[in-house]
């Protein structure tokens, strides 16, 4: 039974970098193109998870625990964001019966 960092190191670091960057870009494209608030929100979570994966990979390759600790903080903050974000989306749904962001155009000049 190998140590987990050793298992992580069986795959070259570049692959983690490319994979995380791809996930991150998919997240960005999702945020910019989708029109449903909840799906946009899921794409933001995807971006955060790409970051988590990359942090873990860097951390394992450098044998430095700081990166993995950072992952816990990101998870905790993401959970707090989910609470607030879903509450805001529910509030909008109650008032408008929709979560499509195209409806939200009251604030323009």
């Amino acid at each position: 039974m190998n140590e987990i960092p050793e298992v992580i190191r069986t795959i070259p670091l570049q692959y983690y970098l490319f994979f995380s960057s791809t996930l991150f870009v998919i997240g960005i494209i999702g945020v910019l193109t989708r029109r449903n608030a909840i799906i946009i929100f899921m794409c933001i979570e995807l971006m955060l998870n790409a970051v988590n994966l990359l942090l873990t990979a860097f951390s394992a390759y450098r044998s430095d625990a700081n990166g993995q600790v950072f992952v816990f903080f990101i998870m905790a903050v993401a959970a707090a964001e989910v609470c607030v974000g879903l509450a805001i989306i529910v509030m909008i749904y109650r008032n408008l019966r929709s979560t499509d962001i195209n409806i939200l155009s009251n604030l323009k000049w």
Binding site: L48, G85, I88
Partner: peptide, 20 residues
């Protein structure tokens, strides 16, 4: 409501970029 949602979506998007 709209300000809250816009700020939230934009803000957490920016957080993702900052983290990366």
């Amino acid at each position: 409501n709209e300000a809250g949602l816009k700020y939230f979506l934009m803000g957490s998007f920016a957080t993702g970029i900052l983290l990366f």
